[in-house]
Computed example of a mutant assay.
Amino acid sequence: MKTVKIAGKTVPAIGIGTWHMGDQADQRENEIAAIQAGLAAGARVVDTAEMYGSGRSETLVGEALAGSKRDDLFLISKVLPENASKQRMEASLDASLRRLRTDYLDLYLYHWRGNVPLAETVVELQRLQTSGKIHAWGISNFDVADLDELWALPQGDQAAANEDLYHLGSRGLDFAVLPWQREHQLPLIAYSPIAQGDAWGHQLTTNAVVKEIAAAHGVGIYQVLLAWVIRNPQVLAIPQTSSVQHMEQNVAAASLTLTVAELAALDEQFPRPTHKESLDIL
């Protein structure tokens, strides 16, 4: 099983995403069951945010994790840009912790850039880490210029991870962001790693080569897409599903290794970028 080391902890390279979870009351039982099935299958990372459903996702996650041993989990949440200030961040974090039914986060991410000076945000994240309410902090939706700016700040290089959109149909990170992160030993957390089931027209699940590779390994298409995302070291994928079966298959993808020939065939279908592209954000 592929693993990733984040903030000093080694975790399986497939985690559990929760965007959109908690939004539909009639899906609540299915969503809780899916999260619990993912943990039973070996996942350790659960990723959420105060933005997701205006806190409903965090509340759902808190309920789903209520019977789990806290030390076995790696829990991530995110602060909104408007709350990433000295005046508001701790109250925002405290609200997340209450919803999640925990007294600390393993990783707290600055969700995306806003109007609060980055230096102020970093100072407050460092203070909250010192307080013990978060064990590490990081950023999300940061491009190379943002990362350069962060690293130039005092203690900016203490960031433990960057979470960006990344999947086979959206490879902009391959040109600049991923090389930068490898050079600076900053892990990537890939959100929407299966392109939200082709919701944005990437046609990954209908591609003949993807289907052939899945058939050759006797696995589902989404497992191939996830195995591609985590093909490089220090990349964690956080797919979201409300299906117990799909969740178990997602977690199993951490044990799937694509061959050099298969990766080359996927490169032909979905070419690596040859120039800097704008950061994809959902």
Score class of each variant (00 low, 15 high):
Ala160Phe: 06
Thr274Ala: 12
Leu105Val: 10
Leu105Asn: 08
Arg28Gly: 04
Asn250Pro: 03
Gly114Met: 10
Glu31Gln: 15
Thr18Cys: 15
His184Lys: 15
Ala7Ile: 09
Ile194Asn: 02
Ser131Ile: 09
Gln27His: 12
Thr257Leu: 11
Ala237Gly: 12
Phe175Asn: 04
Ala7Met: 12
Tyr110Thr: 03
Asn83Glu: 11
Ser68Ile: 03
Glu149Pro: 00
Ala119Gln: 14
Arg99Val: 03
His20Asp: 06
Gly132Leu: 13
Gln223Asn: 05
His135Val: 07
Gly197Thr: 09
Leu168Trp: 01
Asp143Thr: 02
Asp71Cys: 05
Thr130His: 12
Lys276Gln: 14
Ile139Glu: 01
Ala160Lys: 02
Ala152Ser: 14
Leu97Thr: 03
Leu225Ala: 02
Leu118Arg: 10
Glu29Cys: 06
Val46Lys: 00
Ala136Cys: 12
Leu204Asn: 00
Val229Asp: 07
Ala64Cys: 13
Ala119Cys: 04
Val45Asp: 02
Gln24Ala: 15
Trp180Asn: 06
Gly38His: 11
Lys9Glu: 15
Thr241Ala: 10
Gln181Arg: 12
Gln36Cys: 06
Asn115Ser: 14
Asp267Ser: 10
Lys86Tyr: 06
Ile14Lys: 07
Arg56Pro: 01
Ala136Met: 08
Thr10Lys: 10
Arg44His: 10
Gln87Trp: 10
Glu29Ser: 15
Arg99Tyr: 03
Leu256Thr: 05
Asn250Cys: 11
Asn83Trp: 04
Gly22Tyr: 05
Asp148Ile: 13
Ser96Trp: 10
Leu97Asp: 01
Ala216Thr: 10
Ala215Tyr: 01
Leu105Glu: 08
Gln27Arg: 14
Lys133Trp: 13
Leu105Phe: 09
Glu277Tyr: 00
Ile238Pro: 02
Ala40Thr: 14
Asp47Lys: 07
Leu204Lys: 00
Leu258Pro: 03
Val46Ser: 00
Glu124Ala: 08
Gln223Val: 02
Lys276His: 10
Asp71Ala: 15
Ala66Ile: 14
Ala261Pro: 03
Glu149Phe: 01
Ala84Asp: 10
Leu147Lys: 02
Thr259Ser: 15
Tyr222Glu: 13
Lys211Pro: 02
Ala190Thr: 05
Val219Ser: 00
Ala159Cys: 13
Leu97Glu: 01
Glu31Cys: 06
Leu109Val: 13
Ala25Ile: 14
Pro273Val: 08
Glu58Pro: 09
Ser77Lys: 11
Gly62Pro: 09
Leu226Pro: 02
Val244Lys: 03
Leu188Pro: 01
Ser192Thr: 15
Asp72Ala: 15
Glu90Gln: 15
Leu204Ile: 00
Ala41Asn: 07
Glu149Cys: 05
Ala190Trp: 04
Glu268Pro: 02
Ala160Met: 06
Ala264Met: 05
Tyr191Met: 02
Leu39Ala: 13
Ile32His: 01
Lys5Glu: 14
Leu109Thr: 11
